[in-house]
Amino acid sequence: MQLSREDLLQAYRRMKIIREFEERLHEEIATGEIAGFTHLYCGQEAVAVGVCEHLSDNDKIVSTHRGHGHCLAKGCDVKGMMKEIWGSQDGLCNGKGGSMHIADTDKGMLGANGIVGAGAPIAVGAALTAKINGNGNVSIAFSGDGACNQGTTFEAMNFAVVTKAPCIFVFENNHYSEHTGVDYAVGTNKDIASRAEAFGMKVWRADGTDFFAVYDTMREVLEYVRAGNGPASVEFDTERFYGHFEGDPQRYRGDGELDRLWEERNCIVNFRKKVTEASLLDAADLDKVDEEVLQLIEESVEEARGAPRPTPDDVHKNVYISY
C-alpha cells in the first residue's frame, strides 16, 4: 500500500515528536525538576507510530511503563502530556498519573502501567467490549520482552483465544528486560512470537526499526483481526537507546553497542534515508517538520514549568468513578 505524501509527513512528525519529547526529558530529568521514575522510548518510535497510524480513537491501546511513545503515537496532546509528567493539575490526568500512568480515554489510550505484563488483561477486556458491541474495533496490548515471561500475559493470551477477542498482542523486543539480556531471560527458544502461537493464535514478525515494515505488517494483522478471526500477536525486533530507567548506567551493554545501534538501527534516520532516496519527500520537507517539532517541545516544557500544581484539596478528586 503506497502511503501519500501527507501520510508520510504525519508518520515522520509523530516519530520526531516522540524522539524530541524523550530527548528533552532526558535533559530535564537531570535537573531534578521532575519527580519519579521515567523510562524513555527513544529508538522504538517506528513501532508505536507504525501500529497506531492504522487506529482510530475508538480502537484501544494499553501501554507499559515505557509508555510516552504509545501515548504520542495515539494522538495524546503533547503539552498535556508534558504537564502531566511535570505533575501539573493541567496535565492529562491532572498531575496524578505522571510518567508511568498517563491515560487519555478520549483517544483510546487506556493508560501506561508500572507493572510489567499488567496491561494485557486490560486490553483483552477492552477487546471483549468491542466484540460484544460489534463495532469492528480492536484492542492493542503493547508489551516488552520482559512481559512475555509474565503469567498475566499468558493468561490474557489464552483467554483471548478462548473468547476470540479482537485483541492484538504487540511485543516490542528491545533485547533487555530491565538489565537482563533476552538471550538469558527468554529460555531456550528466543522467538517470543512462537509463545503466542502455542496458544493457537496467528503470529507475525517484523523489523521494529523499519517504519514501513511495521506499518505493512500491522495492516495485515488488523485486516485479519477485524475480520473476526480472533486475536493475533506480532513481535517487532527493536532497540532502546537509553537505559531501562533514567539514571541507569547501562553497564550491561557491550563495548560500542550503543554507538552501533544509533548508527545502524536508528528508525528516524533510516526513514529519512528511504523517503528521500525514493523521492517521496524532500529533505527540506523533513527539516521543516524538525523545526516545528522542536518549537512545540520547547513550548511544552515552558508551559509545564509554569503550570499550576495540584493542591491538598485535589487529593480526593478523580480517584473513583461512578458507573
Rank of each mutant, 00 (worst) to 15 (best):
N229C: 08
V203A: 04
R226H: 11
T64F: 06
G32D: 09
D287W: 01
K288Q: 12
L281S: 02
Y224S: 11
A35M: 11
V47Y: 02
P166R: 08
G119P: 03
I18N: 10
P166L: 09
S194M: 10
I140F: 00
A307W: 11
T238M: 12
K288A: 11
W204N: 11
Y184I: 14
R205E: 12
K79E: 14
D7S: 04
D57S: 10
S4I: 01
M201P: 02
R205W: 03
T188R: 13
V124K: 06
I122Y: 03
V124P: 07
F271H: 05
I115R: 04
C148P: 05
I297F: 11
N149R: 09
N318R: 12
E257R: 02
Q295E: 07
A127R: 00
D207A: 10
I61H: 08
F21L: 10
E155G: 12
Q295H: 01
A30W: 09
N94E: 11
R251L: 09
R240A: 10
D259K: 08
L281M: 04
H68E: 08
V47C: 15
F37A: 13
Q295P: 00
H39Y: 13
G181V: 08
G69M: 08
A227R: 14
K202R: 15
H175D: 01
R219T: 10
L286E: 00
D216M: 03
D57V: 05
N229V: 13
S63W: 03
P166G: 09
K273I: 05
T311A: 11
G87P: 09
S143M: 15
G75Y: 10
I321P: 02
G98L: 09
N173K: 14
G243V: 15
K190E: 10
D106V: 05
S143Q: 13
A112I: 01
G256Y: 09
A103W: 08
P166H: 10
Y12I: 02
N318K: 12
C148V: 14
S4A: 01
A130L: 00
I297K: 14
Y242T: 15
F236I: 08
E6Q: 00
L280F: 01
I102A: 08
T129A: 14
F169C: 05
W204K: 12
L8G: 01
Q295D: 05
K96R: 15
C42S: 15
K60L: 13
C76V: 15
P121R: 00
E33Y: 09
V293F: 05
S233M: 10
R13T: 03
Y323Q: 05
A123P: 00
T188I: 13
S63P: 06
A284G: 03
H65N: 07
L72P: 07
F199W: 14
Y12S: 01
A278T: 12
P121C: 00
N135P: 12
R5T: 02
T153L: 13
E257L: 02
